[in-house]
């Protein structure tokens, strides 16, 4: 025979205990979720996604026609390309951030923001695949391959444009430089002629600028007028011996 009355107290005690723990855990989790939601997002606004969804929501009326599907497809491709950039950045960051977190170099907040970004990007990818499949069956399977190539192709083109843009300034620099070398050379020739004509005044001439006088002696040793490159080569050979 069980004494129900006697057992009531322990059961009530257990009930209260579980109740307190449950409400505490709920409050704690709510608090944590609110804090996480108030953290700044990892990435900035997703312009390509906004653009795509805005296009979807343009209502056709007499002034604006229906948005053609090809534009939507292009916008979706742009969105997928931006997603590729984000995935790459997430992947590159992850291991470094985990290591920093373990060492305690970064706070928990940062890690939470990161995890939220990771979850968001997963949803974003799924959404893009679904949209792509809605446009054309099986496009979802290849859209990210295309987007990946687009991302790296854009990088190549940007870098090449940057480098090719240097051509003009390099050309200008070289023209300038060539002109100054030529004028130097002409001056040297003139001075050479002067030294050949009248030997004694040459002794006073070097005093005006020592640098030029160095070049002069080399030219005389080399046995006559030669351009800068030529005299450089002569010097090189001497240096080797």
């Amino acid at each position: 025979m069980v004494h129900w009355l006697a057992l009531a107290l322990p059961f009530a005690y257990l009930g209260v205990l579980v109740g307190i723990m449950a409400s505490f855990s709920r409050l704690y989790r709510q608090n944590k979720a609110r804090k996480a939601a108030s953290l700044a997002p990892w990435f900035g606004p997703h312009l390509q996604r906004d653009l795509y969804l805005s296009l979807l929501h343009i209502e056709p009326d007499e002034k604006t026609p229906r948005v053609p599907e090809s534009i939507l497809k292009a916008a979706l491709l742009r969105r997928a390309t931006e997603d590729i950039h984000r995935i790459i950045s997430i992947r590159n960051t992850k291991s470094a951030l985990a290591a920093l977190l373990q060492r305690g170099s970064v706070g928990d907040d940062l890690w939470q923001r990161f995890q939220r970004a990771e979850k968001e990007i997963e949803e974003e990818l799924r959404d893009v695949v679904n949209e792509a499949n809605a446009f054309s069956p099986n496009w979802g399977a290849t859209i990210f391959q295309s987007a990946n190539e687009m991302a790296s192709n854009q990088m190549i083109r940007k870098r090449m444009d940057e480098l090719q843009a240097q051509k003009d300034s390099e050309r200008q620099w070289w023209d300038h430089r060539k002109a100054s070398i030529e004028s130097d050379f002409m001056n040297e020739l003139d001075r050479d002629a002067a030294t050949a004509n009248s030997a004694p005044p040459a002794k006073t001439a070097p005093a005006t600028s020592t640098r030029v006088s160095d070049d002069d002696t080399v030219l005389v040793e080399a046995g006559g007028p030669a351009d800068k490159g030529q005299s450089g080569k002569n010097k090189k050979k001497k240096g080797k011996n």
Binding site: D50, I58, T64
Partner: peptide, 15 residues
Amino acid sequence: MDLETFNPVPITLDP
């Protein structure tokens, strides 16, 4: 950010 919300962008389409 959930799947439904987005910031509308002011754009127009040339017909």
